[in-house]
Write a protein that binds this DNA or RNA. Structure first.
Lengths: 111, 111
DNA sequence: AATATTTATCGTAAAAATACGATAAATGAA
DNA sequence: TTCATTTATCGTATTTTTACGATAAATATT
C-alpha cells in the first residue's frame, strides 16, 4: 500500500522535494529552457521541440504549472506559457540553503 | 505503454533530471541532512530518525546510492553511509548552470 | 456555415515509485 | 554454539508517473 506519508516530514523538505520532483524529468527541464529563451510567451512551439506526443507534452506542462514553475493563460485556440520567475528564484534559494546546510557538515566529515 | 523516451533528450537534461529525481522525496532530503550533520559515517541512526519502516528507508538509501549522492560500505551487521561530496557539488554546479541559463532569458522576458 | 488549427482532457496501458512485512545474511554477544 | 542485532533483499500491494491515441473545446480561416 503506497500510502504516501509525506505529512510526516518537515514542510521545508516537502516543499523542496516537490520542486525537485517537478524538475525530475528531462522533458520538463527542456521545456523550462525553451520558455526561458523566448522573449515572448510560448504557444505551440514547445510541442515541436520536445520529442514527445502533443498529449504528453501537455501533461508535462500541467505538472510544471501545478508546481507553479510556469504560468499559462489560455488565449483562444492557442495557449500562452511563460516561466514563473518568482517560483524559480524561490526554488533556487531553497536549494542554496540546503546545500549550505549540507556543506556545514562537510568540515567535520570523515569521508 | 510508458516507454520512457529519455534517450531522446540531451545528456545534460538527463543527468540533471536524474539528480533532481533522486532529491524528489522528502525522506531522501532528510537522509542527506542527517548524513551531513554527523561527523562519522552513519549506520542505524537513519532508520530511527526517518518516520518510515526499515525496509523503506533501505530502499531510499539505495536510490540515493544509485544516484551516487551517498556512499555505503557494508561493515558486518552494521552498514556505513556517508555523503558523496563530489557528486553533491557536481549537482550543485549543474543546477547553478541551469539557473544561470534560465536567468539569461529573464531580461528579454515579457512576463 | 463549414473547415482547419491548436491545445486540454479523457481513456487506457505499462512502468516506476512508494511502502511494508517477512526473511535472509552477517556478525557480535551470551 | 546459540541468540540477538542490524540491514539488505524479496514478495506484494497500491499509487503515481509516463506515454499515446482519440476526442472535445475554442477560435481562426475560407
Amino acid at each position: 500500500m503506497a500510502i504516501h506519508k509525506l505529512e510526516e516530514f518537515g514542510k521545508k523538505e516537502q516543499h523542496l522535494a516537490s520542486f525537485a520532483k517537478a524538475m525530475g524529468h528531462p522533458a520538463r527541464i527542456a521545456i523550462l529552457k525553451v520558455l526561458a529563451q523566448r522573449s515572448e510567451c510560448v504557444c505551440g512551439e514547445i510541442v515541436n521541440v520536445i520529442p514527445l506526443a502533443q498529449a504528453t507534452v501537455s501533461q508535462h506542462l500541467k505538472a510544471l504549472k501545478e508546481a507553479d514553475l510556469i504560468q499559462g493563460t489560455i488565449d483562444g485556440p492557442k495557449s500562452c506559457y511563460c516561466i514563473n520567475w518568482k517560483t524559480i528564484e524561490k526554488f533556487y534559494t531553497e536549494f542554496n540553503t540546503l546545500f549550505s546546510k549540507l556543506q556545514e557538515g562537510k568540515l567535520k566529515s570523515c569521508c
